[in-house]
C-alpha cells in the first residue's frame, strides 16, 4: 500500500464524502446477506438442527418455558432449498460475507503505475459487483435457471456491463488512487450511469483538464485540489466523477441538469501554463485538448465569453469567479492567437 505521503489523506477524505453511497450499498449487502441466511436456515437441515436454531433464536427467556422441539415443528419452513441448489446458495452467502468483511476497503482501489484506468475501475467495480452477482446466482439457482457455463464466474467477478438498471442505481462508489501519468478518462464514460460515483485520487503530475471530456448534460464532473470541494458529490443521486489533482490543474464543477433545466459549469481555476511535456501515456496534444474542451464548454456557458468576444458588454451574466474567468479569457485569447489588449 503506498504511503499516505503521496495522497495526504485524500483517499480517506474521499471515502468519507462518499459515505451515503457506501452506506446504501452496505445496507443492501446486509439485507441481502440476512435474507439469504434466513432462506438457508429455513429451508435446510434436519429437524434436530432446526430445533437447535429455533432454541437459539427464542433466547434465554424461553428456557424452561417453551418446548423448542415442538415450537420448531410448527415453523413455516418455506420451500426447502433443494440439495442441488444449496451449495450454490451457500457459496453466494460466503461471497456476501467476504464483501461485508472487507469494510471500506471494498470501495478502494490502488492502481499500480502504468495500468489502464478503465480496466482498473472495471475490475474494482466487478469486485464490489459480486454482491449483485451473488444475488443473481441465488435467484437463478432457486428458479432452476442457473447455468455454470454462463453464470459460473459471477461470484468472483460481476462487471458493470452486466449490471441491471436497479443495480446501477445502487452502484458501489469507488475511490481509485492513480498516477497522474495514467489519467486518461475517456474510457470511464462506460461506467457513469445509474448512481455510480467514481473519485480519482491522483498522485504526481497529471494532465490539467482530463475530466472535461466527460462533461455531458446529466453527469456531475468535478476537478479539485481540496477534497472538501467534492462534497457536491453527496448532493446528486445520479452518476458523478471527480478527480483530486495536484496544484496547477484546472479546477471546475459541472452540475448535472435538473428537471428540464440545463447543467451548470463553474470554472474555478485555469492553469497559466500550457502543457509542454508528455506525461506517461498522455501526450501534450491530449493534455491541451482537455483544456481546450473545457474552455470551449465554458464559452458556451457564457462564462468567459464576455471579456473575450463581447467587449461591448452584453455581460449581465458575469460569473462569480471573476479572476478565474479572467484567467480563462486570457487563456482563450492566447489559444486564439488574438492580441490580449483586444
Amino acid at each position: 500500500m503506498p504511503s499516505d505521503k503521496t495522497t495526504d489523506g485524500r483517499v480517506e477524505r474521499s471515502l468519507a464524502i462518499l459515505e451515503k453511497a457506501r452506506e446504501d450499498f452496505h445496507s443492501a449487502l446486509v439485507a441481502t446477506s440476512e435474507e439469504l441466511r434466513g432462506l438457508l436456515d429455513a429451508g435446510s437441515g434436519s429437524a434436530e438442527a432446526r430445533a437447535e436454531r429455533t432454541a437459539a433464536e427464542l433466547g434465554a427467556f424461553a428456557v424452561g418455558h417453551i418446548d423448542v422441539d415442538r415450537f420448531s415443528a410448527f415453523e413455516e419452513t418455506g420451500e426447502p432449498v433443494a440439495v442441488t441448489v444449496a451449495p450454490k446458495l451457500e457459496a453466494a452467502s460466503r461471497t456476501l460475507q467476504s464483501l461485508l468483511d472487507r469494510g471500506d476497503d471494498l470501495f478502494l482501489v490502488r492502481a499500480e503505475a502504468g495500468k489502464d484506468l478503465r480496466e482498473v475501475v472495471s475490475a474494482g467495480l466487478a469486485r464490489a459487483g459480486r454482491a449483485f452477482g451473488a444475488a443473481r446466482t441465488v435467484e437463478l439457482a432457486r428458479s432452476g435457471r442457473y447455468d455454470e457455463a454462463q453464470h459460473g464466474e459471477w461470484l468472483d467477478r460481476f462487471p458493470p456491463s452486466l449490471w441491471s438498471g436497479r443495480e446501477r442505481k445502487l452502484a458501489p462508489p469507488i475511490v481509485v488512487e492513480i498516477e497522474g501519468t495514467d489519467l486518461l478518462a475517456g474510457g470511464l464514460a462506460d461506467f457513469l450511469d445509474g448512481a455510480q460515483k467514481i473519485v480519482l485520487v491522483v498522485r504526481g503530475p497529471a494532465p490539467p483538464a482530463e475530466l472535461s471530456r466527460l462533461i455531458t448534460p446529466g453527469l456531475m464532473v468535478v476537478q479539485a485540489e481540496d477534497p472538501a470541494d467534492l462534497s457536491v458529490l453527496a448532493e446528486t443521486e445520479g452518476p458523478a466523477v471527480a478527480a483530486l489533482l495536484p496544484d496547477g490543474a484546472a479546477r471546475f464543477v459541472h452540475l448535472p441538469e435538473d428537471d428540464g433545466g440545463r447543467g451548470r459549469l463553474t470554472v474555478n481555476h485555469m492553469p497559466e501554463d500550457e502543457p509542454k511535456r508528455a506525461l506517461g501515456r498522455v501526450s501534450v496534444y491530449q493534455q491541451a485538448e482537455g483544456l481546450r474542451h473545457l474552455a470551449s464548454l465554458a464559452a458556451g456557458w457564457g462564462l468567459a465569453a464576455a471579456p473575450a468576444a463581447a467587449p461591448s458588454g452584453d455581460g449581465a451574466a458575469a460569473p462569480a469567479a471573476s479572476t478565474a474567468a479572467d484567467t480563462l479569457a486570457a487563456w482563450i485569447l492566447r489559444q486564439a492567437d488574438l492580441p490580449e489588449t483586444g
Binding site: 440476512e34 435474507e35 441466511r37 434466513g38 432462506l39 436456515d41 429455513a42 437459539a56 433464536e57 433466547g59
Partner: peptide, 16 residues
C-alpha cells in the same frame, strides 16, 4: 451478562 447470539436478531422476511 447475556452471552449475545446473532440468532436472536432473526432475518428479514422472505421476499422471494
Amino acid at each position: 451478562r447475556p452471552v449475545l447470539d446473532p440468532a436472536w436478531q432473526g432475518s428479514l422476511p422472505d421476499m422471494s
